[in-house]
């Protein structure tokens, strides 16, 4: 942990600002239901992963709540955009807040920037309110001057709780 603190304090303010804006923009795309723009934040080999519990170290060969590359994300986008996606007839909206952003350092092998943050998401669906909260771990890669997501791991504190209904879209 001490290493992380060192790495974080060593990140320059411009990078911190840049990364923060990126994470805020990512949340904004989700809350605005701009699905294709959201998918386009990911690199060609990017992955979105939500493990069932914090102790999982890989999605490979283990159960996942979400494990999606851009193609599977596209399936999800096309599903919720289909006129006969019945569950989408219910009015719904989300609000994400992202904070506690820690730049953990740079991965020596890939050069990816490792960033941890905390999120809180409120969802309203019909007359019901649900809360989801947890940790994002991003591997960010700079391509053509823009940050892209090489991987996003989402550890929800709710992950093992019984779900009232399901998760229809990325958290």
């Amino acid at each position: 942990m001490a290493e992380h603190i060192t790495a974080a304090s060593g990140a320059d303010l411009a990078t911190y600002h840049d990364v923060s804006q990126f994470l805020f923009q990512q949340s904004h795309l989700l809350d605005s239901k701009r699905w294709q723009d959201y998918i386009d934040l990911f690199t060609e080999d990017g992955l979105y992963w939500m493990p069932p519990a914090p102790h999982y170290t890989t999605w490979d060969g283990t159960p996942s709540i979400f494990i999606e590359d851009r193609d599977l994300m596209t399936v999800r986008m096309k599903r919720v955009s289909h006129p006969n996606a019945w569950s989408q007839q219910a009015e719904w909206a989300t609000n994400h807040v992202v904070s506690n952003i820690v730049i953990q350092g740079t991965d020596a092998g890939s050069g990816d920037l490792l960033v941890q943050s905390r999120f809180h998401m409120l969802e309203v669906r019909r007359d019901d309110v649900r809360h989801f909260a947890g940790t994002y771990q991003h591997r960010l890669r700079k391509l053509d001057g823009h940050w892209r997501i090489a991987s996003q791991r989402v550890d929800m504190v709710n992950a093992q709780a019984a779900y009232e209904y399901v998760l229809q879209i990325w958290v």
Binding site: M50, S64, I65, F66, I67, V75, R76, A85, S87, V166
Partner: peptide, 15 residues
Amino acid sequence: NLVNSPATMINADDL
């Protein structure tokens, strides 16, 4: 993962 997880793309419409 795809059909039976809490992020199911199938059971969402069943429920």
